[in-house]
Design a protein around this nucleic acid. Structure first.
Lengths: 355, 355
DNA sequence: TTGTAAGCGTTATCAA
DNA sequence: TTGATAACGCTTACAA
């Protein structure tokens, strides 16, 4: 290995440019550019020669130069506010995989609603970086002002799990209502008749869908809805504790509790343990999201898996397709909403009621 | 604001350029550039005029153009492999905050060791994006080949928690040994004499430091080390379950178990519950990292908090300072390792032993 | 203190 | 099928 004599010099290596490649391959830079961009009208032999020179010189095109000259920056912005680490991680993995495959890079930006105008923050970011498109994750995808600004700016964007599908031209989502319906039905089929429900944060779009799914399943199976079995939570562990305590303090106890997310379900589990209720013997508990905590509780938590990675990859695909299309011509992209399938993950926290 | 007649056109808005600003302020573009870069030798009145024009035109400099013309891209690369979502999230929050404050953007890239040569992946990314520096998170910061390639390339980089401080010119870290020492001492002071330990992944640098801290504390307090109380885990919940079972199957049970991370501690808690051991009555359990799960277990897990966000912010600071310095002149940056303080987070999983 | 002119490494235009 | 040459929007000499 070469040891650098001093570690200070600003640049140790000089990178080859398109001119070097052109010289090496004995063609004009325009030809190299054509090969780089997979354009037609390049004789196979010439293409080979260029490709060879590229390899020989270890050449990579300069993104900044491409961005300046052309219309594409090969940059995708990923906007997020404050979702769970697990969610954000999944989104990044999925989006990154697709971006890399298409030669794009991911620019991550947090929106800080407290500090400043989110819309202005985003617009500034776009103006500076000239990203080719942006991916919006909740709760940014819920922000009407942001959507409107993006639309007006003409910036392609895709929303992950937006509250209203009709609001956005491009989105990926999951059927939260159906998923909650399925979980409730599963509990009913086990034999549960009194099923408690801990609602999610009232501001969060998906939360009410999950609640509706619970109610519809109850209704479809002829089970009377009981107001005392439902409590308003806020997606946090602590709110799960509070709600579970409230639900379990009545006289007629439920045999199962379904929480609108895993953190609240974990809270409910803690309460059950505290009250000496065995899970799932005395009480079955189900969550939603399949976050890491679902496999770290005791017993393991039955929950619903959102295919986050796949959804994010799908979002990136939609966005990248739009970007390319737009570049080839002003084809007015049709609104596209891609739905992803949920999955019930069965663990040990649910079972047939004891009685 | 201009309303777009149709939502299809590639660009709906035209952005102001430095020329527009110069014209508006009635100065040369060079003067605008000086204001933009906070250079000296601009009369206050002139500066005001330029600033005013910038605001009036809603101008933001084009990063690509700046990158092409100058030597800086205002891009920082964040490399990661597969750390926990919680860890990565903290790193991003911290790094992003500092980058934004300094006008830099974060380019996130995953390294996929399986697919290809990691070093080559990184080098290609650098060649394309011309990032001004990179932040390495474990386990990428453990990769010698990557470090060597970066050094040779002359790319400034900062490592978060590298295994050997001497390997890197810039890094932030935490004293894992001391932290484990402190936790063990805390348990000893509670009165525990038989303390089990679940080791972390043998490949992970910090894991052995944590183990050493445990042993040193034992030794310093005159407690005999017992081989049967220590088991080799792999940082996963399942390995925690296995190790806890192994440790608790002996005849002389420990009154406490200290796991090298929270996931394994959660595994130990599950085992305790299964065996009917009450926590902390029969068995105290402590973890390491203060991941979200530590507050979602029942009872809450006593653990050690790593100041991830602060460390990442510190890493970004170090990197940005180096970048600026280097740009001002070839000042040979001295090696800098910044240490961050850990903190024991007391929850309900530890207490005075019952006996 | 300010301005002029020459790039930076690409893509796009238009001619050959 | 190729190739000159002009942008792209900025920074960096170098003048004034």
């Amino acid at each position: 290995m070469v040891k650098s004599p001093r570690a200070k010099g600003p640049r140790t290596v000089t990178r080859a440019t398109i001119n070097d490649v052109a010289r090496e391959a004995n063609v004009a830079i325009k030809t190299v550019s054509r090969v780089l961009n997979n354009e037609a009208n390049v004789r196979p032999a010439t293409r080979e020669r260029v490709l060879h020179a590229i390899k020989a010189l270890n050449y990579s095109p300069n993104l900044a130069a491409r961005g300046l000259a052309g219309s594409k920056s090969f940059l995708i912005g990923l906007l997020y506010d404050n979702p769970s680490p697990h969610y954000m991680n999944g989104v990044q993995i999925g989006a990154l995989a697709r971006c890399r495959a298409e030669g794009f890079h991911l620019l991550v930006e947090v929106c800080t609603p407290e500090t400043k105008n989110v819309t202005q923050q985003i617009l500034t970011m776009i103006a500076q970086t000239r990203v080719d498109g942006v991916i919006l994750t909740p709760p940014v995808s819920d922000n009407e002002a942001v959507l409107e600004a993006l639309r007006r700016d003409g910036m392609p964007y895709v929303a992950i799990a937006p509250p209203k599908l009709s609001d956005v031209p491009l989105c990926v989502h999951m059927d939260d209502l159906r998923a909650a319906y399925d979980m409730t039905t599963y509990l009913l089929k086990l034999g549960h008749r009194r099923i408690g429900f801990i609602k999610g944060h009232p501001q969060h779009g998906a939360a009410s869908l999950r609640y509706n799914g619970y109610r519809e399943a109850l209704s479809d199976h002829g089970i009377k809805f009981e107001r005392t079995l439902v409590k308003q939570g806020y997606f946090s562990f602590e709110s799960g504790v509070d709600c579970a305590n409230a639900i379990l303090q009545g006289s007629a106890l439920p045999t199962a509790i379904f929480a609108a997310n895993d953190d609240m379900a974990a809270g409910a589990m803690a309460v059950a343990h505290q009250r000496g209720l065995s899970i799932p013997g005395d009480l079955s508990i189900a969550g939603f999201d399949d976050t890491p905590v679902a496999s770290l509780t005791w017993p393991g938590l039955t929950t619903i898996r959102q295919p986050i990675v796949e959804m994010a990859a799908g979002a990136a695909d939609l966005l990248l397709a739009t970007i390319k299309e737009r570049h080839h011509a002003g084809t007015p992209a049709v609104a596209l909403a891609r739905r992803f399938q949920h999955e019930i993950v069965l663990r040990a926290s649910t079972a047939v009621p004891r009685t």
